[in-house]
Design a protein around this nucleic acid. Structure first.
Length: 104
DNA sequence: TAGTTGACGACGG
DNA sequence: TCCGTCGCCAACT
């Protein structure tokens, strides 16, 4: 079990996302120099199997859409978690996306 | 060992 | 402006 691989870096950065804020796969990929946003999605997918403490619901695509909700235990879990933090979600998309967007 | 998949992003028509 | 295609790179089968 390597703790210093890029998967762990994604988890660590995701945990740093403040409550009530969101970020995108592309931002994480660029910040960690992963080379591809798909790697971030893959890492977060695996995060459910390795570490449930990763707030993956705060990571969306560049449009602000909750594309990852289908990979949660419940499809509406992601939206409920975001709304619980004060983020408005309509039609699986974050309202005022740029306003709540967080940069590392 | 090689091919396919995948929670995306950028670019072109 | 919207839709389709290509590229990214590691994990899985």
């Amino acid at each position: 079990m390597k703790e210093d691989n890029y998967f762990q870096k994604v988890y660590e950065l995701t945990r740093k996302i403040p409550q009530g804020r969101v970020t995108t796969y592309g931002i994480i990929a660029t910040y960690l120099e992963l080379g591809s946003a798909r790697m971030v999605g893959w890492a977060l997918n695996k995060s459910f199997s390795s570490d449930f403490s990763v707030p993956a619901h705060r990571v969306v695509n560049r449009k602000g859409e909750l594309t990852g909700r289908n990979h949660f235990p419940a499809p509406d879990m992601m939206q409920k978690l975001l709304e619980a933090e004060g983020i408005k979600v309509v039609d699986n998309t974050v309202v005022d996306f740029e306003d709540v967007l967080w940069y590392p």
